[in-house]
């Protein structure tokens, strides 16, 4: 299946684009999706952490990703100021 991934902040800078298309065999859960991503973009390993959002909700490691899902990488958030 073809996945389209939205990228923000430092993840966008690591990948070099605000959107990434990835061909991925089904089924895939969040944990193995992150492993694929980290092999391709080793700098993701250097982040404090990052989460995956599916359809605008934070996803658990064992959650399955389906074709057509809105996937986003959520590096450490830093809203507000101070």
């Amino acid at each position: 299946m073809k996945l389209e991934i939205l990228l923000f902040g430092i993840a966008r800078e690591i990948v070099g684009s605000s959107k990434l298309q990835l061909e991925q065999e089904e089924p895939v859960d969040v944990k193995s999706f992150k492993q694929v991503l980290q092999r391709r973009y080793p700098k993701m390993n250097h982040l404090s952490y990052y989460k995956v959002a599916i359809n605008q909700e934070f996803a658990e490691d064992d959650q399955l990703i389906k074709e057509g899902d809105e996937i986003a990488l959520i590096p450490p958030v830093s809203g507000g100021a101070f």
């Binding site: 430092i10 934070f58 959520i74 590096p75 450490p76 958030v77 830093s78 507000g80």
Partner: peptide
């Protein structure tokens, strides 16, 4: 500050950094 996906980049005279990354 924990849950809302908003990111901040600090820009200095000699560089920039994504906060908490």
């Amino acid at each position: 500050k924990e849950t809302v996906p908003i990111w901040k980049k600090e820009v200095f005279d000699d560089g920039e950094v994504w906060v908490a990354a």
